[in-house]
């Protein structure tokens, strides 16, 4: 039997990779994908908690996270398209209209 801690460590590693990608990349699509990576890391730990603690609530939380991730992807990609129509770039450093 694989210990629960191993799943939590895998989840932590994937979450940190997502944080690294979000902080260091400036392409808005790849930043968005790092966000999805972090959500998936949380899903790993929730499913393993649900399996090891023999409770269904973790899996139900995963169900809602997937729903919210789908909604977030639709809205976020629509915002990206709207931004690209105005600026013709996917680099977030060049989107600075709202400063001061």
């Amino acid at each position: 039997m694989v210990p629960l801690n191993w799943y939590l460590m895998l989840s932590a590693v994937v979450f940190s990779i997502g944080v690294f990608g979000f902080l260091t990349r400036r392409n808005i699509i790849i930043m968005f994908m790092s966000l999805e990576l972090m959500l998936n890391a949380v899903n790993i730990s929730l499913v393993s908690f649900s399996h090891y603690l023999q409770d269904m609530r973790g899996v139900i939380l995963v169900f809602f996270i997937v729903t919210v991730a789908a909604a977030e992807a639709a809205i976020g990609l629509a915002i990206i398209i709207a931004l690209f129509r105005n600026k013709t770039t996917a680099n977030v450093d060049e989107m600075n209209e709202m400063k001061g």
């Binding site: 590693v13 994937v14 990779i17 997502g18 790849i30 990576l37």
Partner: peptide
């Protein structure tokens, strides 16, 4: 999973 997520970012 670790290697593929590194490749993604």
């Amino acid at each position: 999973i670790t290697a593929l997520s590194l490749l993604v970012v």
